[in-house]
């Protein structure tokens, strides 16, 4: 009797959990659905019926062609910028995390806490100082300056996550490597990187997406439209008097595609990165 009650209550609990999951999924996917089906319409069709899918391939082709023409330079800029920022951030954060995980020196504890405090600061607080520093370094209106800001901005979070993972690697691996004659550099690349590969992939995806979606710093720091990343280019589609919803949503869809591809490629590693590594 008690078992039956438990089964029944766990059955209801399961239904509740599934209902909650479906609700979240619908809330997440509904805007994407609206974006996708709107990209197949012109303004007339959109105003007539904003919710129902009407697949007009001619209109879709025209919308996507126009969006591509406007966005393509931005996509190239964003791919280059996000790629460089991702590699740079992970490279430097890995070295910092390796140091903090394996060595103690005077004030290293204090230094670590200073890093953590930086993580608590909202990014927008740094906007004026960052632009001011870029101006003094003559790096305003340049992708190099934007890359440096991106790399610096991602350090604290990545180092925080990586330090935890590196500390979990048993000391014997490092000792064995040290006896075998491995330098710190060698230990970093031949031991730490293979062990941390899943979390590096996860962090890579997060950093890439974060940089791809960055809007405020490029908007303030860049003047030359040729250098605009995809996020800033999207505002060019937003007409002053008329909004062409089909083209706008086609551009949004197009700008999401690289992230979608990235997630599909790295999804396995992305999930594994949230787990603790299996260490034998």
């Amino acid at each position: 009797m008690r078992n039956e009650n438990r089964r029944r209550s766990s059955g209801w609990k399961g239904v509740g959990i599934h209902a909650a999951i479906w609700m979240v999924l619908v809330m997440e996917l509904f805007p994407l659905w609206v974006m996708l089906q709107t990209s197949f319409k012109d303004n007339r069709l959109f105003i007539q019926d904003p919710w129902s899918p009407i697949f007009s391939w001619d209109l879709a082709l025209r919308n996507y062609k126009e969006a591509l023409g406007i966005l393509l330079p931005g996509v190239v800029n964003s791919l280059a910028l996000s790629g460089v920022v991702t590699v740079g951030t992970l490279f430097l954060a890995l070295m910092g995390a390796y140091f903090f995980a394996r060595y103690r020196m005077p004030l290293s504890g204090f230094l670590w806490w200073v890093f953590l405090v930086l993580m608590l600061l909202p990014a927008v607080v740094n906007l004026v100082p960052v632009v001011s520093v870029l101006g003094r370094l003559k790096l305003l209106n340049s992708l190099v300056g934007l890359g440096l800001v991106g790399i610096a901005g991602g350090q604290v979070f990545c180092m925080y996550v990586l330090r935890g993972f590196i500390e979990e690697i048993p000391r014997d691996y490092f000792d064995a490597a040290e006896i075998d004659g491995a330098s710190h550099w060698s230990q970093l690349w031949r031991i730490v990187v293979p062990f941390c590969w899943p979390v590096l992939a996860t962090l890579g995806v997060l950093v890439f997406v974060n940089q791809w979606n960055d809007f405020l710093v490029p908007l303030v720091a860049l003047r030359d439209p040729e250098l605009f990343p995809v996020g800033v280019r999207l505002i060019y589609l937003d007409g002053e008097y008329i909004k062409r919803w089909g083209v706008i949503t086609a551009a949004f869809t197009f700008s999401s595609l690289p992230l979608l591809v990235l997630f599909l490629i790295a999804s396995g590693a992305f999930v594994r990165g949230f787990e603790r590594p299996f260490l034998r």
Partner: peptide, 29 residues
């Protein structure tokens, strides 16, 4: 430094690198 003492050590948990084959582990040093 340990690497210049010309000694070899076998550890309690073996300390074999899981991403390398047995051959690569032996050849590592």
């Amino acid at each position: 430094p340990a690497k210049d003492r010309d000694i070899a050590m076998v550890f309690q948990n073996y300390a074999l690198y899981p991403h390398m084959t047995a051959y690569e582990n032996m050849a590592f040093g």
